[in-house]
Every structure is written in C-alpha cells, then in structure tokens.
C-alpha cells in the first residue's frame, strides 16, 4: 500500500496506467473518452481485475458490490460498452477516495 493516496493529477495518471496494464493496451490509447469495452477490448472479467488493481491505486479496499452499485446508479439508460470510459473510472475512484 502506498504511504498516502495520490493527488488529483497523479490519480488520473495512475488510473490510466492501471487500465492500460489490465487491458494490455498502449498508454496512449487510454484517452479520457476511450470506452473500455468498445474501444479497448475489455470484457466483464477485466472489470474485476481492474477494481482489484484500483485498490492499490487508492491505497485501500473497495468493498464488494461498490463498483456494481456505482454502475447501477451512473449507467441508467446508457450502453455500458460505450459509457464506461477512462473518465468514468476516474470519477468512480475519486468518489471512493472521498469516502471516510
């Protein structure tokens, strides 16, 4: 676990790096609006891998079900394959970081 959680700019870069590592994609392709499934080849189990590795980025556990709950509340009426973008994941991590 890192000694302190990353600062905002660092956070985005850490998330980008994690997405690139999980999906074995070049970092350059992990743009803010890149959709993980539509553009970067992600499938459902990659999300499990991603959330696990994001715990290291955050420096703390992400309780089971939290990512799924975030999807349910933020994807209403949207197509997940297009809507789960780098920005989407960064927003999730920032929300997690703000929790006590």
């Amino acid at each position: 676990m890192p000694p302190h959680p990353p600062l905002p700019g660092e956070l985005r870069e850490a998330v980008r790096g994690t997405i690139a590592a999980v999906l074995v994609q070049p970092l350059e392709s992990v743009t803010d609006d890149a959709a993980l499934m539509r553009d970067l080849g992600a499938e459902s189990i990659d999300m499990l891998d991603l959330v696990f590795r994001l715990e290291e980025v955050l420096g703390r556990k992400i309780p089971t079900g939290r990512w799924e709950a975030y999807l349910r509340s933020h994807l209403v009426g949207l197509d997940p394959t297009a809507a789960i973008t780098t920005d989407f994941v960064v927003a999730f991590v920032e929300e997690e970081k703000r929790r006590p």
Binding site: V22, L23, V24, Q25, G41, I45, D46, D49
Partner: peptide, 8 residues
Amino acid sequence: RPPKLVKL
C-alpha cells in the same frame, strides 16, 4: 490474440 488473454 489479444495478448490480454494470457493473464487468464
């Protein structure tokens, strides 16, 4: 192909 599948 794709190389991402190696981890599985």
